[in-house]
């Protein structure tokens, strides 16, 4: 009897929290298909009076949002592909090679994660400006090439790979590159997928750096474009919600399909090594 009551209490609490966490997202989707003005009524409506896709059409035809979707996909995929390879090379080296100063260098890298990225942004902007990379896709790609967190994640995973596999390959006469390509890459695939997801989502969701480096609106990523729309279209609630849906939905869908990998990665990243 007591457990039943406790159970009911727990479920009510969990459902209440679920409602709180999910309502803003559901309202965003619902408001995005409301006719203009529907979202600014009293009492507020949760469901549209009629469903319309006019705001999505406006976004694609008049406000050029297809271009921003493309930009976001391009830079997110680009950063993900390049940084996963670069970080994996370094993470493997830290885990499996013995070289002078290895542990000190690794500790130094971990400690420097405390420096907030914002500190680097002013000189980085000036540097990329000199290199002619402001307002280009490279402006986002280049600073994302390597990440200390990524190197850390891969090192932790690679540490657990058996030394004997590498030794056996060496005896068979495999070169270092072959060992990396044929043994290490396939074996670290789970963590590479996880890191790839982190990087993709991080780049997709990033706001401050693209806002700084993309000065021409044809180069904006989705978050910057939607943030910018807010300036002119703040009263068009339904249109803004459609823009938010287009920004959030791809990432939510990705998450829905690869939840397990993503969650594993967060838990792995928090375990001290």
């Amino acid at each position: 009897m007591k457990t039943t009551l406790k159970k009911i209490f727990l479920y009510v609490l969990l459902m209440l929290i679920s409602v709180i966490t999910f309502t803003p997202l559901l309202w965003m989707i619902s408001a995005s298909v409301m006719p203009s003005g529907d979202a600014n009524t009293f009492p507020p409506k949760f469901f549209p009076s009629t469903i319309t896709f006019e705001h999505y059409i406006t976004l694609f035809t008049r406000l050029n949002i297809g271009r921003y979707v493309f930009n976001s996909f391009l830079v997110s995929l680009g950063v993900t592909a390049l940084s996963t390879i670069i970080n994996s090379l370094a993470g493997y080296a830290f885990a499996k090679f013995r070289f002078r100063g290895r542990d000190k260098l690794f500790k130094f890298l971990i400690a420097s994660m405390i420096v907030p990225a914002q500190v680097t942004m002013l000189p980085l902007f000036l540097m990329l400006n000199k290199m002619g990379l402001v307002n280009t896709y490279w402006g986002i790609l280049v600073p994302g090439l390597a990440s200390i967190f990524g190197i850390f994640l891969i090192r932790q995973y690679a540490l657990s790979l058996p030394e004997s596999l590498i030794e056996a390959a060496k005896i068979d006469g495999a070169t270092e590159i072959e060992i990396y390509w044929r043994i290490i890459l396939p074996l670290t695939k789970p963590i590479l997928v996880t890191l790839g997801l982190f990087t993709f989502m991080g780049t997709w969701n990033d706001f401050l750096w693209p806002l700084i480096i993309m000065t021409d609106d044809a180069m904006y990523t989705l978050p910057v474009a939607v943030g910018n729309l807010m300036g002119e279209h703040a009263p068009d609630t339904e249109l803004m919600m459609a823009g938010s849906v287009l920004t959030v939905l791809p990432i939510l869908l990705v998450f829905l399909f690869v939840q397990k990998q993503y969650i594993k990665g967060i838990m792995a990243g928090s375990v001290k090594g």
């Binding site: 803003p24 969701n205 823009g243």
Partner: peptide, 18 residues
């Protein structure tokens, strides 16, 4: 867990607008 975690993956700018 999915319901509780969903806001984490969303884009801050977009949900701030919401």
């Amino acid at each position: 867990r999915f319901f509780f975690f969903a806001p984490v993956v969303t884009t801050l700018v977009a949900v701030a607008i919401v």
